[in-house]
Amino acid sequence: MSDKTESPLHTVGFDARFPQQNQTKHCWQAYVDYHKCINIKGEDFAPCKVFWKTYSALCPVDWVEKWDEQRANGTFAGDVNP
């Protein structure tokens, strides 16, 4: 919670790929991109963080938990392999 003092409020901005009211794909794409990104570049690769911020801001926690579980079981529908 330390970075709150410099910029207290910050969230995902407008994305031209998802201009609609429906943001389901925005959340999904960010989740898939993040895991693809860390599978290629590793957990600590900083540019992957932007996807993480996007999906954690948009996706409900329940969805993320469900997808994490599916990835662990190998039943995840998205392509996250490098």
């Binding site: 409020l9 910050h10 969230t11 995902v12 901005g13 407008f14 801001a57 948009l58 409900p60 329940d62």
Partner: peptide
Amino acid sequence: ISPAMTIKAI
């Protein structure tokens, strides 16, 4: 366009 924070309502 440029929100400063996101709140999810479920």
